[in-house]
Structure formats: C-alpha cells, structure tokens
C-alpha cells in the first residue's frame, strides 16, 4: 500500500476553477470529509460546470488510501498536460481540463484545519462588513475634482441639457 502523499490534509481538498488565459482562480470549492466529489453539468454534481464541453457526469474524484484519484467519465474526456486520462492519481497543484477546450480546474490540498462544519467553505463572511466608504477622503477627492474649471463647465452644460429636455448639446 502506498504511503499517503499528504496524510494530515487528505480530507481537506480544494478545487480551483481557473481563468484559462491567466491561470487565476475564478472560483474555489473546498471539501472536508468527502470521499467522492463529482463534477459535471448536471445540477446534482458537487461541482457544476455548465459548459458544452462538460458532460452531465464528467468526472469523479475519489479518495483512495488518503490519495485522490480522478476518474474521467465524460464524453469529451479529461486532460492532464494535454493528454487524455481515464484515471489518474492527483498530486497537489495538478491542473486538469474538462474536454479539449472546456474549463480548467486545479486540484489542491489545504493543510489548515477546517474551522466550520460546512463542507463548502469558500465564503469570506466578513467581507461585506469590511466594505465601507471613508467619507472624509471621498469628500476631499470629490472637492478636488469639482473645483476644477472643466468640471464647472460640465456642470453648466449638464444643467442646460437637463433643462432642454435631454437634447444633447453641441460642444462649445
């Protein structure tokens, strides 16, 4: 029996959806305590990818002996390093593509301990609370622009336009 590649993290797996041009993460799914993760177009999959290249049931990731193995079941196949695979043990950072020109995904592991009970933990719940406007700074920046002669001219032009009922004014 092969030794686990990453024993402490084998039960916390992350799949990143990548921007095919830049390779940046567009979306991520984190799975804790999952033994099978399914990928496909059908809404019942764990990862749903609504793309013509993706089959309803396209691939299964199965945890075996603390490693994750990819089984490709889709009509358009799954590619790793531009080669079609039907079965492959995934190393951390492995990138695979669903279909020849379908979405690109990266398999990864996370050694952090899960801090919540949910299996999907890709949400920064504090983000909304951190969204705020620094009113003083805003006012300073607005005033800087609004005091400019050009802005005053535009204000005047805008007033004339609104008064005239929306006829676009000719430039001065």
């Amino acid at each position: 029996m092969a030794a686990p590649l990453f024993p402490s993290a084998a039960k916390c797996m992350v799949i990143h959806l990548l921007d095919s041009a830049q390779g940046n993460t567009l979306q991520a799914w984190r799975f804790s305590n999952h033994e099978i993760v399914t990928i496909g177009r059908d809404a019942n999959n764990d990862i749903v990818a609504a793309d013509p290249q993706v089959s309803r049931s396209h691939a299964r990731l199965v945890q075996q002996n603390d490693n994750w193995t990819l089984f490709s079941t889709g009509r358009h196949g799954t590619l790793i390093n531009d080669r079609l695979v039907t079965e492959a043990v995934l190393q951390p950072q492995t990138v695979f593509r669903l279909g020849a020109s379908g979405p690109m995904l990266r398999f990864d592991v996370d050694t952090r301990q899960p801090h919540r009970s949910e299996t999907l933990e890709n949400i920064d719940t504090d983000l909304i609370a951190s969204l705020a406007v620094d009113e003083q700074r805003k006012q300073r920046e607005v005033d800087q622009i609004a005091e400019n002669t050009l802005f005053r001219e535009l204000q005047e032009r805008s007033r004339q336009l609104r008064k005239s009922g929306g006829q676009t004014p000719e430039s001065s």
Binding site: V133, D134, V142, I145, A146, S158
Partner: peptide, 18 residues
C-alpha cells in the same frame, strides 16, 4: 474595498452633474 471607495467618488460627481 477599493471599488467601494472609488465608486463613491464617481457617484458623488455624477450627482453634482445632475
């Protein structure tokens, strides 16, 4: 946060342009 702050400036300028 960056968009939040910058958009606030644009929105205020747009208001002043009626």
């Amino acid at each position: 946060s960056q968009d939040f702050q910058g958009t606030a400036v644009t929105a205020e300028l747009a208001r002043r342009l009626e």
